[in-house]
Design a protein around this nucleic acid. Structure first.
Length: 1079
RNA sequence: GCCCGGGUGGUGGAAUUGGUAGACACGCAGGACUUAAAAUCCUGUGGAUAGUAAUAUCUGUACGGGUUCAACUCCCGUCCCGGGUACCA
C-alpha cells in the first residue's frame, strides 16, 4: 500500500540515494559526443556550523538546471568541492587546539552528508578541496606562472619574463616603462641592462612581474595578526571580527591586477552578470578619465613678499603665455623661420622628424616669449643649433637658456659645424638625453607639481592646490615661516587611526605650506595647502582646488577663508559648489562662452600642445595584496637567496605545508610558519617565505580543476579544458562580487594570455541567489525577575529582549513548556500571557546560531522529505530575491507532491495507470505544462514553474475525478510528466519512473517535446472593455476579422447599455487580446 | 551624499514586457466526512456601497502629476525600503 506518507517518502528517498550512488548515475565523462553544459555552484567554506536552509537555495536551483540540461541531451558537468583553506579553521585551532586539517575534514564529511540528503546530482568523484596538496600543487604552479609574467602594455597582454629580458637586452626599457613610477631606476639602455648584476636585474624584473614582492602599505590587523586585502577591510575594521586595522609598510606579495583594470572593465560587457554585480565591479575598478596637469612652483616667498613688480616679471618670463595675440605672432615668426632653415638645421631636421628618434620633435617652436630651434615637448628637451658665435650673442644665449631651463626644459646646444660634420655623435647625445626620464615621468619632484583632475575645464577656477600630507613635495616646498604649522599638522595626521578618519570623514583640516603654484594658463599664483582629504594613493596625490565646482574644495575654501573664483556665473550661488558640466564658462580666458563638457577636450589638447599635461585615465583599484601571515593556506613556492625570491622548479611542487601545532603568529609581522625555523632555513643561505596565500588563491581557478581533477601532470588536460570551456551558469552569493569574482577573472585572463586556455572570461552567466534571512523570535523578561511577559503587554514592564529558539515557537506563539526545558535558567520561568497565549516578538535578521533562528534543512527533510524541501525553497519567491525563511507555505508544496503521486494511484493506494488515449483537454494541460516549465527554467524562474506544476496536478486530478470510478490516469501523458518533474523532485520522479516499468534511471530519459497544435485555440474569449474598463466577455473565432468583431460587439446588450444609443467615438479591436469601446 | 535594485491583498508572490491586476500557495471563513479532533475534500476570500440573492456600481498595484483608446508596466516629481560605495579629485 503506497500512500505518499512520511514513512513512504523516507523509504523512497533513502532507497534512491543508495541506488544512485551504487549505479554511479552522476558520473560525468569528458569524452562525449553530446554538447557540453557546465553548471557551477560557488563552492562552500566547510564551517563547523553545517548547512542551514539558506545554503541549499542556490544549489537546488543549479541542480534543477543541471538535471534539466541532462534530460535535454547535454553532457552536464555539475561538480562540488570545498574552499577549505582559511581563517576560521585556524582561529578554531587556536581556541580549541584542534588541527585545522582535522576540523576541516570533519566539517567536509558533515557537509557532504547533508548535501547528499537533498539529492543533488554532483559527480563526487570530481570533488576538489583547496587544502589538498594534490590540488594546491597547481595553485602554487599557477602562481609561479603569474610570477613569471609581465604585462606588455603595447600588446595588452601578459607575456613571459624571458621575453622581457630579451627586450631589455635589445633595447633597454624605453618602450616598456617601469609600472611603478617611484622605483629608483626608471630608464635604462640595453648596455646598462647587460652591465647590471643578477640581484639588480632581479630587482628590476620584480617591478614588472604580475606577482611581485614589494614594500607596500598594507592593512595590518594586530588582533588577527595578519595583513588583510582592501576588500577584507570595512570601515577601518576587519571584515571578520571587526578588529581595528592600521596602515603599515610591509614586504609582501601582490598581484599586479591594476594592469588588467581596463580589460576587467571591458570584459564585463561580454558576460551575463546582473546589473548590480557589474556596477559593483565597475565601482571597484573605479575608472575615471581626465588629465594630468603640471603646475610650476614659485620657489620662494609669496608674491606679496616679493613685491608685485617681480611677480609680474616672473609670470611674463617663465610661463607659457596664453595671450592669444602673443601666441599668434610667435607662431607666425616660427612659420617664417621654418621656411628658411640653415643647412645644418635642415640636415638635423631630416634626422629627427617623424619621430625618427622615437619621440616627436617640433622645429621653430614658441616657448614663452622665445622661439627655439627644435624641441621635444614630451621630453622637455630643447636643441639649439648655433651659427657663428659672437661674444655678445653668447651672453644673450646663456640668459635665454637659463630662462627656458626655468620653464622646465633642458637645453643642449650644438654648432653648425658639429651637425654638418659629426651628425651621428650629435644624434647619439640626443638619444641619451631622450632616454633619461622626463619631468612628467619623474612625477611631482623638483619644480613641478602634477595634479590629476577629471575637470580640466575648470582650470581658471583654481584657487588653491592641496597635497596629500604624505606627498613627497611637502618637505621640499614648505617655507621656513610655515614649517612649524606644517609639522604640527603632519603630527596630527599621523596620530589619527584609520577608524578615526573613517568616523570623521567630512571634517575639514589642513595647513598652508607657504609655497605657491602657478596656473599655466593665466600665470595666477595660488597657495599650496596640505590636507587629509587628499589621498596619497590616488591619482598623483595632489589636486587643484576648484571651490566653485567641487563640494569638498568649496568647504575647504570657506573654512580657511580662501578666495573663490566663480567661473560658472549664476550656476554658483556663493553658498554651495555646483559640479555641473553644463554651465557656460566665464572668467575663463579662451574658454569663455564655451559649455563646460566641451571645454574638457579643448583644455586637454592645449595642455598636450604645450607639453604641460596629458590625457590620463585613473583607476581606483589597487594591486591585490597576496600575502597572509597565516598557517592554514598555500605556502609560497619560492626560495630566497640573498633576499631575492626564485621560483621553485615544477618537479619540486607542491611545497607542502609543514606539520605544526603552533598557529600563533611569530610576532614582528611574521606568520605562524616563521616559528618553524628549520623549515624556513631549509638549506644554507636559502630561505622560504613564512607567509601563505589568501583563500582567494585556491578559489580563483577551482572550476578548471573539476574538468580534470586527478591530473598530476597539469592543472587540467588541454583536451578537457577545450571541451568544457567556460562555466555556462555560475550560481552563488553576491558577497563575492569584488574579491573572488575579480581574482578569478584575473587568473583566467592571465592563463589565457599565456596560452593555457582559449577563453578569457571564466563565467558566461552569473546568478546571485538572494540571501535567506532568519525570522527571529523574542521573549521579554521582566527586569530582575524570572517572569516573561507576552509581547503585547511588554509596555507595562521594564523588560529585556532575549532571542528564543525559533524551533520552540509556533508562528508567534511560544511553547512555554518547551521553553522551560530549553535552558536550565528558564526551568521555573513564569509567564504573563495574553488571551492565554505567550506571543513572541519577531524580527528579520541574518540566519545565525547566536540569534537562535537557524533552521536546519535536515529537519525539514525529516518532516516532509527532500523533494518538498527542494520545491518549497524554489516556491518561496524569485531566486535572486532575498527573503526571510518561514515554513508557512510548505504544506501547499507537500500537498502538491501527494496529489501528483495520486495521479498514478487509485484511491486505495495501488499503482495504476491506463493506456487509454488522453482527452484533448488532458493533452492541452500536458503540453502547456511542458512549454511553461521549459520557458521558466530557461529564465531561472523556478517559483513560477512550481506554480505551473501545481496547476497541472490540480487540473489533471480534477479531470481524473470526473472519470468513472476505477479509471486511472493516462500513461501517455503521465510518463513524460514524470520526466518534466524530475529536475525538481528527483526522488518521487525516480520512484514513479520505476513503477512505470523502467529499468534505467530517469536521468537518462529525454525531456518531452511540447506540441504547439494542442495549445492553439480556435477561438478567444475577448474581454470587452468600455473606456478601458472591462464590462463583459465575448467569444469569437481567432481568425474573425476586426470589422466583424466590432459589429457584433457594438450590437451587444452590454455595449448598448453603456452607449445609450449614441455612436461610440472609437472602437479598438486587438486580435486575440482585447476590444475597447471609447465613448 | 552618490550609484544600482525595489514598493502589488492579512502573508509569500503571479501578470506572456502597454491589453481582463491579484495566477499559484499560505492564512482566514463557511460547509462535507467524523462521537470528536487531526487529516482530507468542497466553496468563498483586495476594499467599499446597494441587494435575500444571482449581481451591479465605485475604488484599488507607495504618493502626486503626465503620455495613451488602454499604465503595476512608459515619462516627470515626491516619499519609503534593500544593496553597493564613500573624502577617488
Amino acid at each position: 500500500m503506497a500512500e505518499y506518507s512520511k514513512e513512504e517518502i523516507k523509504r523512497i528517498e533513502e532507497k534512491w540515494r543508495i541506488e544512485w550512488k551504487n549505479r554511479e548515475v552522476y558520473k560525468v565523462s569528458n569524452d562525449s559526443k553530446k554538447p557540453k553544459f557546465y553548471v557551477l555552484d560557488m563552492f562552500p567554506y566547510p564551517s563547523g556550523a553545517g548547512l542551514h536552509v539558506g545554503h541549499p537555495l542556490g544549489y537546488i536551483a543549479s541542480d534543477i538546471v543541471a538535471r534539466y540540461k541532462r534530460l535535454k541531451g547535454f553532457n552536464v558537468l555539475h561538480p562540488m568541492g570545498f574552499d577549505a583553506f582559511g581563517l576560521p579553521a585556524e582561529q578554531y585551532a587556536i581556541e580549541h587546539g584542534i588541527h585545522p586539517a582535522t576540523s576541516t575534514s570533519q566539517n567536509i564529511e558533515n557537509f557532504k552528508k547533508q548535501l547528499a540528503n537533498i539529492g543533488f546530482c554532483y559527480d563526487w568523484s570530481r570533488k576538489v578541496q583547496t587544502c589538498d596538496p594534490k590540488y594546491y600543487k597547481w595553485t602554487q604552479w599557477i602562481f609561479l606562472q603569474i610570477f613569471d609574467s609581465w604585462y606588455n602594455r603595447k600588446k595588452e597582454k601578459a607575456e613571459r619574463v624571458a621575453e622581457l629580458v630579451s627586450i631589455f637586452e635589445k633595447e633597454g626599457n624605453a618602450n616598456h616603462p617601469v609600472p611603478n613610477s617611484k622605483f629608483e631606476i626608471q630608464n635604462f639602455k640595453a648596455v646598462e641592462w647587460k652591465s647590471f648584476d643578477d640581484k639588480n636585474k632581479q630587482e628590476i624584473l620584480m617591478q614588472y612581474r604580475l606577482a611581485y614582492l614589494a614594500h607596500t602599505d598594507v592593512n595590518w590587523c594586530e588582533a588577527l595578526g595578519t595583513v588583510l586585502a582592501n576588500d577584507e577591510v570595512i570601515n577601518g575594521v576587519s571584515y571578520r571580527g571587526g578588529f581595528p586595522v592600521v596602515k603599515k609598510q610591509m614586504r609582501q606579495w601582490s598581484l599586479r591586477i591594476t594592469e588588467y583594470a581596463e580589460r576587467l572593465l571591458q570584459g564585463l560587457d561580454k558576460i551575463d552578470f546582473s546589473d548590480s554585480m557589474k556596477e559593483i565591479q565597475r565601482n571597484w575598478i573605479g575608472k575615471s578619465v581626465g588629465a594630468r596637469i603640471d603646475f610650476d612652483l614659485t620657489p620662494g616667498p609669496s608674491p606679496e613678499e616679493r613685491g608685485s613688480a617681480s611677480g609680474e616679471i616672473y609670470a611674463q618670463d617663465f610661463i607659457f603665455t596664453t595671450d592669444e595675440r602673443t601666441w599668434k605672432s610667435q607662431k607666425e615668426n616660427a612659420r617664417d623661420n621654418r621656411k628658411s632653415p640653415t643647412e645644418a638645421e635642415e640636415k638635423f631636421w631630416q634626422s629627427v622628424r617623424n619621430s625618427n628618434l622615437g619621440f616627436k620633435f617640433r622645429r621653430q617652436h614658441a616657448i614663452g616669449r622665445f622661439i627655439v630651434d627644435f624641441v621635444c615637448i614630451e621630453k622637455k628637451l630643447v636643441v639649439e643649433i648655433d651659427g657663428a658665435i659672437h661674444d655678445s650673442q653668447k651672453k644673450e644665449d646663456e640668459e635665454r637658456t637659463l630662462i627656458i631651463q626655468d620653464a622646465g626644459f633642458k637645453v643642449i646646444r650644438f654648432s653648425n659645424e658639429e651637425v654638418l660634420k659629426n651628425l651621428e655623435v650629435v644624434l647619439q647625445e640626443i638619444r641619451m638625453e631622450l632616454s633619461s626620464p622626463s619631468p612628467l615621468e619623474r612625477g611631482p619632484e623638483g619644480e613641478v607639481l602634477t595634479v590629476f583632475t577629471t575637470r580640466p575645464d575648470t582650470i581658471f577656477g583654481v584657487d588653491f592646490m592641496v597635497l596629500a600630507p604624505e606627498h613627497d613635495l611637502v618637505k621640499k616646498i614648505t617655507s621656513a615661516s610655515q614649517q612649524t604649522e606644517i609639522d604640527k599638522y603632519l603630527k596630527y595626521v599621523e596620530s589619527r587611526s584609520e577608524v578615526d578618519r573613517m568616523a570623521e570623514v567630512k571634517k575639514i583640516t589642513g595647513a598652508f605650506t607657504g609655497a605657491f603654484a602657478v596656473n599655466p594658463f593665466n600665470g595666477r599664483e595660488v597657495p599650496i595647502w596640505i590636507s587629509e582629504y587628499v589621498l596619497v594613493g590616488y591619482g598623483t596625490g595632489a589636486i587643484m582646488g576648484v571651490p566653485s565646482g567641487d563640494e569638498r574644495d568649496h568647504k575647504f575654501a570657506k573654512h580657511f577663508k580662501l578666495p573663490i573664483t566663480n567661473i560658472i556665473g549664476s550656476h554658483y550661488n556663493g553658498e554651495e559648489a555646483n559640479p555641473t558640466k553644463d554651465a557656460i564658462l566665464e572668467n575663463s580666458d579662451f574658454l569663455n562662452g564655451m559649455v563646460m563638457h566641451k571645454a574638457i577636450d579643448v583644455v586637454i589638447q592645449k595642455l598636450e600642445e604645450k607639453g604641460i599635461g596629458k590625457r590620463q585615465v585613473n583607476y581606483k583599484m589597487r594591486d591585490a595584496g597576496w600575502s597572509r601571515q597565516r598557517y592554514w593556506g598555500e605556502p609560497f613556492p619560492v626560495t630566497y637567496r640573498e633576499d631575492v625570491p626564485y621560483a621553485m622548479k615544477d618537479e619540486e611542487l607542491p611545497l607542502e605545508l609543514p606539520p605544526s601545532d603552533n598557529f600563533k603568529s611569530a610576532g614582528n609581522g611574521e606568520g605562524p610558519l616563521a616559528n618553524l625555523t628549520d623549515w624556513i632555513n631549509f638549506a644554507p643561505n636559502q630561505k622560504r617565505d613564512s607567509n601563505t596565500m589568501p583563500t582567494h588563491a585556491g578559489a580563483a581557478w577551482y572550476f578548471l580543476r573539476y574538468m580534470d581533477p586527478h591530473n598530476d601532470t597539469a592543472f587540467a588536460d588541454k583536451k578537457a579544458l577545450d571541451y568544457w570551456q567556460q562555466v555556462d551558469v555560475y550560481i552563488g552569493g553576491s558577497e563575492h562580487a569584488v574579491a573572488h569574482l575579480l581574482y578569478s577573472r584575473l587568473w583566467i585572463k592571465i592563463l589565457h594570455d599565456l596560452g593555457y586556455i582559449k577563453f578569457d572570461e571564466p563565467f558566461k552567466k552569473l546568478i546571485n541567489q538572494g540571501k535567506i534571512t532568519g525570522d527571529s523570535r523574542f521573549v521579554y523578561r521582566v527586569r530582575g525577575t524570572n517572569r516573561f511577559v507576552s509581547a503585547g503587554l511588554k509596555g507595562n514592564h521594564q523588560t529585556d529582549e532575549l532571542h528564543v529558539d525559533v524551533n520552540i515557537v509556533n508562528g508567534l506563539e511560544l511553547d512555554t513548556e518547551a521553553f522551560k526545558k530549553w535552558k536550565p535558567d528558564f526551568a521555573n520561568a513564569e509567564f504573563i500571557l495574553e488571551d492565554g497565549k505567550y506571543i513572541c516578538g519577531s524580527a528579520i535578521e541574518k540566519m545565525s546560531k547566536s540569534y537562535f533562528n537557524v533552521v536546519n534543512p535536515d529537519e525539514i527533510i525529516n518532516n516532509y522529505g527532500a523533494d518538498t524541501l527542494r520545491m518549497y525553497e524554489m516556491f518561496l519567491g524569485p531566486l535572486e530575491q532575498s527573503k526571510p525563511w518561514n515554513t508557512n507555505g510548505i504544506d501547499g508544496v507537500f500537498k502538491f507532491l501527494r496529489r501528483f503521486w495520486n495521479l498514478f494511484h487509485d484511491s486505495t493506494g495501488n499503482f495504476t495507470v491506463s493506456d487509454v488515449e488522453p482527452s484533448r483537454d488532458e493533452l492541452k494541460v500536458f503540453h502547456k505544462t511542458i512549454k511553461k516549465i521549459e520557458h521558466d527554467i530557461d529564465n531561472y524562474s523556478f517559483n513560477t514553474s512550481v506554480s505551473e506544476f501545481m496547476i497541472c496536478a490540480n487540473e489533471l486530478s480534477s479531470m481524473k475525478s470526473n472519470l468513472p470510478t476505477g479509471q486511472a490516469g493516462k500513461r501517455s501523458i503521465l510518463e513524460p510528466l514524470v520526466i518534466v518533474l524530475a529536475p525538481f523532485a528527483p526522488h518521487i520522479a525516480e520512484e514513479l519512473w520505476e513503477k512505470l516499468g523502467h529499468q534505467d534511471t530517469i536521468l537518462n530519459a529525454s525531456f518531452p517535446q511540447y506540441d504547439e497544435q494542442y495549445l492553439t485555440e480556435s477561438s478567444f474569449n475577448y474581454p470587452i472593455s468600455i473606456n478601458g474598463k472591462v464590462r463583459a466577455q465575448m467569444n469569437f473565432a481567432l481568425d474573425m476579422p476586426k470589422e466583424d468583431i466590432e459589429k457584433v460587439v457594438l450590437a451587444s446588450d452590454i455595449v448598448l447599455k453603456w452607449t445609450e444609443g449614441k455612436p461610440p467615438k472609437k472602437v479598438i479591436v486587438v486580435q486575440g487580446k482585447i476590444v475597447n469601446v471609447v465613448l
